[in-house]
Design a protein around this nucleic acid. Structure first.
Length: 654
RNA sequence: GCUGCUGUAGCUCAGGGGUAGAGCACUUCAUUGGUAAUGAAGAGGCCGACAGUUCAAAUCUGUCCAGCAGCACCA
């Protein structure tokens, strides 16, 4: 006999070899009906798993949060079966669960079309209705290789080879169809339910390596019930409406064009936001004792060779020969002998050049430089994405030169600065990741041990929680990544703090310590927004284009109802402008409905409507974006209200 | 860069081997109307670029360019 424990502390005895199914059946019929999987000692497993003596077990119902992963994984298997039923010569590869759904990669000569998805969904529905049980078998390596080879499944053969010797080789069957899989799965395909949808097709590299073949990937989403699926699809539609590229066009904020791929043309409206953000950050870093600097855009390639960027990022740099092309033969000719310059892809080496001027004393440390650094990176075509990924960007960059002992204090101060800025900008959920040494890197393992330890110790000392992501650090040092959660739950990496022992060494930075000895400073690279362009894109999507008053390109429109009161409207605009408010009048010969509609579409936060009553009483009828109706106030009161709201968050009186 | 899709008016899109279409926006005229569209008229296009097939190409084919969705990349 074996005994199993339940979460409430109870124990029960079963025959040797009892499975989760037997246990759940022994408890109650209704429980057995709802239970789709089991957790054994905390690990999600098949309900049909054989239990060991003393195991702690928990039942997973289909409606449990934990079952979502199983629903999606099982759904991926159903997708694969459906595809092979429809197109038997298609090879299957892998099909993992991802956020909100799953995908499956197939090897097939003909890529899938969007129309195919409908047919596949129909077939999947049938497979789910058939409700074949998932059963697990453990095969020998040889057997598995033979069977998959016979089926023409070469990718599965490669996967089998990659499984470490000694590990079990699980095969999950659902009726006639089977797949190599770690599991676990639910009881049968019926447990998947019908709340699923295939969303898109795309190409993807085998094993995520661009040197490998391109496979056809089908993405899907799956949920416990139709309501959840509908909510998810609604959320996706909402996100689409917020797309900053669409809003950028609608609100006349910026545009892109072919001749400057990936570089922003800021229109007057967009540049208001840009300037407001730049000025805001400038005030914040100035208060935090940073010295603002400006460094050259174009520098000799030699500097980038020295810093190590040339070796690693040359392919993504814009290189400019210092030469006027000759125009012989009507073709532009460049000799190839010219000195090579490069547009800076980042600012750090330039900041070190300023640090290196003159002799620095330990008394100068920590020395904090800030720059709105305009950087160019020749990003791959497919990587460009509106404001989120551009070729010309302006980083709110900064570098702190300090001693090893000062790292902890600087980390703490920086984290506080970030918290203050993010919360002022309306982002209250921040997740921190510590990214450690990548495979290709500069600096010895000892330096990396030290750098990773100092950074994580410093962060721990601030009392903040973080997760570690292995291998994601910069080539010169480990980094902290600060991820913001936006209004519809998406996360964006914005801030970063990177600890660097390598660049000061390579670029020979030094200071004189108490005992008159030359020492290497530590360099902290840091950014708060990341890039102004990208952050503005995030702000647009977060606010769905309805920018808070202090960032709104036009803050107030004053619209008279009839032309008789144009004078009163102009007077109001003049008063608002005198207070630094971005106000305009709309004196067009149009109905008030039309004006209100138009300015509401333009997402102007406040409209002052004035007619006979207002002009006679010295009032305004204030209509606020997103609110029904309007309220009448004295003009003084209305203006004071706008001034308050238009004040940047760091300048507001508490 | 890779795979797939798309490219027609300022915007959103329909059409499709034989004279280029709609709505909105724009211009003009009339309208002075109290909180999300007043009416009428007009103007606007090398149908992404280049080549090929054809009596004839915006339409079919090919190449290229750009955008989009993923992938890969992201100092």
């Amino acid at each position: 006999m074996i005994s199993v424990k339940f979460p409430d502390g109870a124990t029960r005895e079963y025959e040797e070899g009892a499975t989760g199914t037997e246990v759940v059946n022994s408890i109650s019929k209704s429980l057995a009906k709802k239970t789709v999987a089991i957790r054994i000692n905390g690990e999600l497993s098949d309900l049909s798993s054989i239990l060991s003596d003393g195991a702690l077990i928990e039942f997973i119902m289909r409606d449990d949060e934990a079952a979502l992963e199983l629903i999606r994984h099982d759904c991926a298997h159903v997708l694969a079966e459906a595809v092979q039923e429809l197109w038997p010569s298609t090879q299957v590869t892998i099909g993992p669960v991802i956020e909100n759904g799953f995908y499956y990669d197939f090897a097939r000569d003909e890529p899938f079309s969007v129309e195919d998805l409908k047919a596949i969904e129909k077939k999947m529905s049938q497979i789910i209705q058939r409700g074949a049980s998932f059963t697990k078998e453990v095969w020998s390596r040889e057997e598995a290789k033979k069977v998959f080879a016979a089926k023409g499944e070469h990718y599965k053969g490669e996967l089998i080879d990659a499984i470490p010797e000694g590990d079990n080789l699980n095969i999950y069957k659902q009726g006639q169809w089977f797949d190599l899989c770690l599991g676990p799965h639910m009881r049968s395909t019926k447990d998947v339910g019908q709340a699923f949808k295939l969303t898109k097709v795309a190409g993807a590299y085998w094993r995520g390596d661009s040197n490998n073949a391109v496979l056809s990937r089908i993405y899907g989403t799956a949920w416990a019930n139709q309501k959840q699926l509908d909510e998810y699809l609604h959320m996706v539609a909402e996100a689409e409406k917020r797309d900053h590229r669409k809003l950028g066009k609608e609100l006349d904020l910026f545009h892109f064009q072919e001749e400057a791929q990936g570089s922003v043309f800021w229109h007057p409206n967009g540049f208001v936001i840009y300037n407001a953000m730049e000025q805001y950050i400038r005030r914040k870093v100035s208060t935090a004792d940073y010295k603002e600097i400006k460094t050259p855009e174009l520098m000799d390639v030699k500097l980038w060779e020295k810093s190590g960027h040339w070796a690693k990022f040359r392919d993504n740099m814009f290189v400019v020969p210092d030469e006027v092309p000759s125009m012989e033969d009507e073709e532009q000719v460049i000799s190839g002998n010219a000195k090579l310059m490069a547009l800076k892809p980042m600012n750090c080496p330039a900041h070190v050049q300023i640090f290196n001027q003159g002799i620095k004393s330990y008394r100068d440390l920590p020395l904090r430089f800030a720059e709105f650094g305009c950087c160019h990176r020749n990003e791959a075509h497919g990587a460009l994405h509106g404001l989120m990924r551009v070729r010309q960007m302006t980083q709110d960059d900064g570098h702190i030169f300090c001693t090893e002992e000062q790292v902890q204090g600087e980390t703490e101060v920086f984290c506080d600065l970030l918290d203050s800025i993010y919360s002022e900008l309306g982002f209250n959920e921040v997740k921190i990741l510590l990214a450690t040494r990548p495979e290709v890197r500069a600096g010895s393992d000892e330096i990396w041990d030290l750098a990773e330890k100092s950074l994580s110790d410093a962060l721990k000392a601030t009392g903040r929680e973080f997760e570690t992501v292995e291998g994601e650090g910069a080539f010169y040092g480990p980094k902290l990544e600060f991820h913001l959660k936006d209004a519809i739950g998406r996360t964006w990496q914005c801030g970063t703090l990177q600890l660097d022992f390598v660049l000061p060494e390579r670029l020979d930075a030094s200071y004189v310590d108490k005992d008159s000895n030359r020492q290497r400073p530590v360099m902290l690279h840091r950014a708060i927004l990341g890039s102004l362009e990208r952050f503005i894109g995030i702000l647009i999507e977060n606010h769905a284009g309805r920018m808070p008053m202090w960032l709104a390109p036009t803050q107030v429109v004053v619209a008279p109802i009839v032309s008789e009161f144009d004078g009163y409207a102009q007077e109001l605009v003049a008063q608002l402008k005198a207070e630094g408010i971005r106000a305009i009048s709309d004196l067009r010969n149009e109905k008030i409905n039309y004006k209100v509609r138009e300015h509401s579409h333009a997402k102007v936060p406040a409209i002052f409507v004035v007619g006979e009553r207002e002009a006679n009483e010295g009032t305004v009828s204030v209509r606020r974006l997103g609110q029904q109706g309007q309220s009448v106030k004295s003009k003084e009161e209305a203006i004071i209200e706008i001034i308050k709201e238009a004040t940047p968050p760091d300048l507001r009186q508490a």
